[in-house]
Design a protein around this nucleic acid. Structure first.
Lengths: 355, 355
DNA sequence: ATGAAAGCGCTAACAC
DNA sequence: GTGTTAGCGCTTTCAT
């Protein structure tokens, strides 16, 4: 293939040489040098206003757009952030929880607003550290990871290696990395207190306390119980993962075997839905027999039957917080973890007043 | 700031010069030239096996990873695909339908499997053509767009401009771009036929027929009705958008005003959920008074009450199909639209036999 | 088998 | 105000 350097406007040899338009082409056509084109296109004051105008119009009319790869290489600059969603390799099950996906959407908006691009990928939840690849390879200036999963340790190591990293999740003791998340202790507390207010005393807790966020929510749960002079009963705690395909059987078995509870705190709305179904299947009614509180306040929570009382997470704000935390880190600010307020959204699965 | 070119292993002046490791560093440390390092790292047969080994190990131990920006610039190569999710600018409402997000996940997997990166962004659904920006700027080699929305025309123009583009959606007459989607006519047909089998004759249709996919589903709906000697009744058709925040009121009003139907086909599971709630609110029972079929078979469809009978869309396979279609296009293949099979997933909202 | 050197498309001193 | 030139980090002829 002859490497033609001629203008793409003049294809030669009949072959429709579809070389991408570049600055040199604009320059030639405008009768100026590439530097002038570069300056003009970047709105530099150095170049004559009239020339600038002319070059800009020419570029626009030719539908020219800059080669960002080259620009970034030259400027040693990069406006891409990697967003990584872990998945469970064991069950080959992808994280499909609407909550995580909403967070991704929120981040997409926040990045776009600030002129950054978003590289989205998945990573085995057992090897969160693989996420650093995006930074190491220079494809991204930093990483936003959705969820801590079981690998607080790996995250600490990544932070220690100076990887620009922000994690959606809860704040844990001795945490080296920057996390942004809802106030999980408060969430667990509000949910449980509300159920206690309804007069319920045997309150189950469904969620995998190996996950930092769930662990924190459980603290709120325990605290609320103890405020009411009650103790957490291990028989009422069920370690169910977020993944519905795995959780379904676990929750079903629990509801079959354990009838001695009159309320339940679920650590996600999806788990709440599963639990409602399991309860229906054993003939127990929500909220009459069992009052139920979910977590996340996903859009669909309002549309199930009964509509879900749930802890509202600040999804809309989450993206901006995560992105700001990352950019702050890149500016060299030494920002700690951030915890965002949550509140209880009252609906029928655990209403204000029992019917 | 002095632009030190010395090895990062030997920071000077006390400042912890955090320059990224690059080939020249590996070369110096290995006592070879950059070319050799480049060749070694790319597994070239030209370089001595022993040297190759040594260089590779050195690079690994130093945690070196290549600068892809530079590599791509040199090779005129790019392994990034833009995935674009439209949003409704009018309602400032982001597409949060679990279905679209599942498709994104599926694409993420397919791209990763093939060694491509995924750039995710949103675009105003009224200006789908803005999606071409990713290609024009060289940031991506092509675009995968999730949904056609109302702008079939814009998509045709983009394709005419030779933009490598694949769209998730239905196949329309005179379509210039490549679409991949479920068999919408079949979906509408299966859903409606099933309801007719149950003996229902007044079947409503909920969905915005301005959208190609819905339009096609409606064709299946009409066809099934005519097979049964029935005609579509405009009074039973409701143009509701996918966005729950907008659709809720529309569906509610419809269910209040219109009682003369005994079944309904909804064009998404989310719409189905809304509709079930609206029906409950007017005291009509599903499936006894109104049998209901959703569309998509999202993971949560099995967990609502009653569980949703719905048209299953091939989400898991969708990613691979979309990606293959795009890569095929880039290889110069002239592939047409692809339609994937769908099937009806029977659950309780429109069971096999009415209770 | 290895090294020197050119160049991918762009920007920013540094001339003039 | 504009052009000339060097160089971002990498790959790849072309020499040796």
């Amino acid at each position: 293939m002859a490497k033609s350097k001629s203008s793409p406007q003049a294809p030669e040899g009949g072959a429709t040489e579809q070389r991408r338009l570049q600055m040199v082409d604009i320059a030639r056509l405008a009768g100026v040098s590439v530097s002038t084109v570069s300056r003009a296109l970047n709105g530099s004051e150095l170049v004559n206003a009239e020339t600038r105008q002319r070059v800009a119009e020419l570029a626009r009319s030719l539908n020219y757009s800059i080669n960002f790869g080259a620009r970034n290489l030259r400027l040693q600059e990069n406006k891409t952030v990697a967003v990584v969603v872990p998945f469970d390799a064991k069950s080959r099950q992808h994280i499909s929880d609407p909550f995580f996906l909403s967070i991704v959407g929120s981040i997409a908006d926040a990045l776009t607003d600030r002129g950054y691009d978003m590289l989205l990928s998945r990573v085995d939840a057992e090897h969160l550290d693989l996420a650093s690849h995006w930074f190491d390879s220079g494809k991204a200036i930093g990483v936003i990871l959705i969820g801590q999963w079981r690998h607080h340790d790996q995250l600490n190591e990544m932070a220690a290696r100076k990887l620009p990293l922000v994690v959606w999740g809860g704040e844990m003791p001795q945490q080296l990395y920057c996390s942004v998340g809802g106030d999980n202790v408060l969430g667990g507390l509000l949910a449980t207190r509300h159920l206690l207010t309804l007069g319920r005393k045997r309150i189950a807790f469904i969620g995998d306390a190996q996950l930092p966020e769930v662990w924190l929510r459980r603290q709120g749960y325990v605290q609320a119980l103890s405020e009411a002079g009650l103790q957490a009963d291990p028989a009422l705690e069920l370690a169910a993962p977020f993944e519905p395909s795995v959780a379904t059987a676990i929750v079903r078995d629990f509801c079959v075997a354990q009838r001695d509870f009159d309320a339940v705190v679920c650590c996600s709305d999806v788990l709440a839905l599963l639990t409602m179904q399991a309860l229906r299947n054993v003939g127990r009614s929500v909220p009459r027999d069992v009052a139920l509180v979910g977590y996340d306040d996903m859009p669909l929570a309002a549309y199930c039957d009964p509509p879900l009382t749930t802890v509202h997470q600040p999804v809309a704000e989450a993206g901006a917080e995560l992105v700001e935390a990352l950019l702050g880190q890149l500016r060299g600010e030494r920002a700690g973890p951030r915890t965002m307020p949550v509140y209880l959204k009252l609906r029928q699965s655990a209403p204000d007043v029992l019917p």
